[in-house]
Simulated assay, not measured.
Amino acid sequence: MFTFRQVYTFSYNLFQFSGHTWILANSIARFLTFGRDALADTFYSVGFVMSLCQLLSILELFHIADGIEKARLLPRFIQVVEKNLLLMVVIMLEEIQSKPVVCVLLFLWNILDLLRYPYQLLCVLDTPSITLLWACYTLRIPLYILSVITEAVTIYQVLPFVGPSAAFLVLLKLYLPLLAVGASVTIWQLLRERQQHLDRWNKKMKRK
């Protein structure tokens, strides 16, 4: 018999998994159909669903704080803030939405999330997979580094479109070093989290 917490957690992860799967499938289908021309309006096609998924990801901070999800709060907080702030910038500046870098960024974000949500779904069902565990906590580290580099490139390409808004321009320039510091802390925390999860799995297998 599932508890309310388990039903909620399963539903949340299933929604996120379905949303990101739709985004990725839609983006790939458009690219296969229209080629490079599809890059120009990818954000128009998937931006709403992507924004909704990222907005709801704020709930994960409460999940971790409440013990619903066993993960480190700091790296997840940094990642959630990074994505939502950058999405707000992209949404506000229509000129940047058609840039190929935005399409690449959305692709990397989706791959990162599609590594995590299937594993969490299996954890809710108490049927974790070592393959998904390894992929979730190993592959996401280089992918996260690539996504941070892409975020920095996106911010750099945003700067010419900011216009006369000096305050906004200063904030964006300040964001770049903060992004580097936050990414460094996150990578360190992700490496520790990976080691802890793999050690816990090995201990579990030895007890069996």
Results as ranks from 00 to 15, higher is better:
1 M>W: 12
3 T>E: 09
7 V>H: 04
8 Y>E: 10
17 F>Q: 01
18 S>Y: 12
19 G>M: 05
21 T>Y: 15
26 N>Y: 15
28 I>Q: 11
28 I>P: 08
29 A>L: 12
31 F>R: 14
34 F>H: 13
36 R>I: 12
39 L>E: 11
44 Y>R: 15
47 G>D: 03
50 M>H: 14
51 S>R: 13
52 L>E: 05
53 C>Y: 02
55 L>P: 04
59 L>I: 12
60 E>F: 09
60 E>L: 02
62 F>I: 14
64 I>H: 12
68 I>F: 13
68 I>C: 05
69 E>W: 03
72 R>N: 10
72 R>Q: 08
85 L>P: 08
86 L>N: 03
89 V>L: 04
89 V>D: 06
93 L>D: 07
94 E>R: 08
95 E>D: 14
97 Q>K: 05
102 V>I: 08
104 V>W: 14
105 L>T: 01
106 L>I: 04
109 W>R: 12
111 I>L: 13
111 I>A: 02
114 L>G: 09
117 Y>I: 01
122 L>D: 03
123 C>N: 01
127 T>G: 01
129 S>D: 04
132 L>M: 03
133 L>E: 15
138 T>K: 06
143 L>K: 08
147 S>K: 14
148 V>E: 02
151 E>W: 09
152 A>R: 09
152 A>K: 10
153 V>P: 05
154 T>F: 01
156 Y>W: 12
158 V>M: 10
169 L>F: 15
171 L>A: 11
174 L>T: 00
178 L>W: 05
181 V>M: 11
183 A>M: 02
183 A>W: 05
186 T>M: 09
197 H>K: 10
198 L>K: 14
203 K>Q: 12
205 M>Y: 07
208 K>Y: 00
